[in-house]
Amino acid sequence: MTAAAEAPLPVQRRREVVRQGLWVGLATGAYGISFGALSVAAGLSVAQTQVLSLLLFSGGSQFAVVGVLGAGGSPVAAVATSTLLGVRNGLYALRTSRFLGVDGVRRLLAAHVTIDESTAVGTAQAEGPAQRLGFWVTGLTVFSGWNLMTLAGALVGNALGDPRTYGLDAAAAAAFAALLWPRLRDGDAAATAVLAVAVALLASPVLPAGLPVVLAGLAAVAVGLRPGRRPEPAP
């Protein structure tokens, strides 16, 4: 690992990265209230609701579990949809494991908080120390906020109302877009993003939730595996 050779992060950069992580964490936390309330309304107990946030800890998958069960779907369908939505976390881990350089207990912990938000903030940073700081601050902030808000929602119901009223769904998409933005100056990354959007949108009407985003991952394979653009040296 090159970690030891890297310069420590200037205070200004630290603040910037921490602030990004905290804001993403806070915006996500608000959704926890809505999850907690929805889960109890779907017939799960407060304890089951909390265990989903503590153990499953992946927003999309959790909403899928309570959504399928609440609609009278089978447990198998609930677990299958949740798992499909969780595949992308495993793919994120291929990338985050590279800059985290973690082992043992820290690796087990890092795996647990490997989600959209921590990956987005971590990979948006240019320097190794900033990547690690962004990942951990975001992952741990989202975990704490999400779990506290889940409990609040499960106990007192959805006092805030639908988070969409406040545009919080758009805030999440905008945050991911803002984190991706600087990387799109790179031609390969831009091509990957355009291809991924096309794949996800084409697949959405015909495939179950979760699969279109995983399929969009193929854009990275297509762009990454393509032969180098440099002309081959003349024989």
Binding site: L91, Y92, A189, V194, L218, A219, A220, G224
Partner: peptide, 8 residues
């Protein structure tokens, strides 16, 4: 490129 594709 994977996170770029998945997040996009």
């Amino acid at each position: 490129l994977l996170p770029v594709a998945l997040l996009s």
